[in-house]
Each structure stands twice: as structure tokens, then as C-alpha cells.
């Protein structure tokens, strides 16, 4: 009776693919960098007074790198969530200002609030290339030894924040 069962079987396979298609988390663009050590960098701060940022200085504790720019619409979407995250003071958030004009960036932060404990300026996107940045905004979670543990492309939402905290808890202290 396989003849009469075949429509059902074909359909089940098809439904499997459709389901997979739905559950594919499209935001997960696999980064070859995950599990690798972050590239070394040296960046100037956003304003003239702020000191240079060295990648080595950030290590020692897990931290977040958030790539942002004042010209980027979706960055504004994720901004409230970043501010909320900063308010918890649970983790150091490092901002990588990407291909931006520094005065625009400063104004933008003044207007919308500054969630970053430190900011590095990457006007030509040189460091971003090393990080494999795909678009802005983009967010990385780095463990205390400088290994990339998590990457998110696109604006953050509450789910990603929860995911970040989950990974954070699993990290050896």
C-alpha cells in the first residue's frame, strides 16, 4: 500500500524542510571568528581628551563589543536595550564607532544617551574588517581571555541579551 502512502511521505519530508526554514535563525550568520582570539588593535578614543584604547587593556574580564555609527538607523532601534544593559553594570560594554564622524557620534550619544564604558574610533573600518564586521550594528561577546564567544548581526533584542547572559554564566570565572 506504499502507493497510497507516498503522498503522505512526500508531504512529511516537505513539511520538515518548511519547519526547518522557519526555525532557521536567520540572524545567525556564522562567523569564522567564533572561538578565535580577537585581533589586536589600538584605537583612539572618541573625543580628543579620551585615551587610546588597546585590546589588551580590555581583557581580564568578559566584555561586549558593540559596533555602532550615528548614521545607522537600526543602531537607534537597539539603543534603549543597550542603555538598559549598561544600567545593570553587569558587563563592560565597549563601543566600536564605525566609519563615522566623531563629532556626529558625540552628538548622537549626547542626544540618545551613552551606554558605552569605553569607545574606540575606527573611521576607516580597519579594525572592523579584522572582526569580520558585516554591517552595523553588530555585537560580539568576548571572554576574559579574549576569545570571541558570540556574535550577533543586526539590532539587539531582549532575546539576544538573554542569550548573552546565558553564555556569560557558562563561562569559567
Amino acid at each position: 500500500m506504499i502507493k497510497y502512502l507516498s503522498p503522505l511521505l512526500v508531504f512529511i519530508v516537505l513539511a520538515g524542510f518548511l519547519a526547518k526554514g522557519l526555525y532557521l535563525n536567520p540572524k545567525e550568520i556564522p562567523s569564522p571568528l567564533i572561538g578565535k582570539k580577537i585581533p589586536d588593535f589600538k584605537l583612539s578614543g572618541l573625543s580628543k581628551e579620551s585615551p587610546l584604547v588597546f585590546s589588551d587593556d580590555l581583557l581580564g574580564e568578559p566584555f561586549i563589543i558593540n559596533v555602532f555609527a550615528s548614521w545607522c538607523g537600526p543602531c537607534l532601534d537597539e539603543h534603549p536595550i543597550l542603555i538598559e544593559l549598561a544600567d545593570t553594570k553587569a558587563i563592560h560594554v565597549f563601543g566600536l564607532n564605525y566609519k563615522d564622524n566623531s563629532s556626529n557620534a558625540l552628538n548622537w550619544l549626547e542626544k540618545h544617551g551613552n551606554p558605552y564604558q569605553s569607545i574606540g574610533v575606527d573611521p576607516k573600518g580597519v579594525v572592523a574588517i579584522d572582526f569580520g564586521v558585516y554591517g552595523v550594528p553588530e555585537t560580539f561577546l568576548i571572554d576574559s581571555d579574549g576569545f570571541i564567544r558570540f556574535k550577533h548581526v543586526g539590532p539587539l533584542n531582549r532575546e539576544t541579551i538573554n542569550e548573552i547572559f546565558k553564555i556569560l554564566e557558562e563561562l569559567p570565572k
Binding site: 536567520p26 550568520i29 545607522c72 538607523g73 537600526p74 558585516y134 554591517g135 548581526v153 543586526g154
Partner: peptide
């Protein structure tokens, strides 16, 4: 779409 995004990413954003 209003985003400065590569379309693959923008597509995903559109969905959400």
C-alpha cells in the same frame, strides 16, 4: 527599507 544594511541582514530585519 530604512536601514543601512546589506540586504541579507535587511531581509532578516524586515521579517522581524
Amino acid at each position: 527599507d530604512e536601514n543601512y544594511m546589506p540586504p541579507e541582514v535587511a531581509d532578516l530585519l524586515e521579517r522581524s
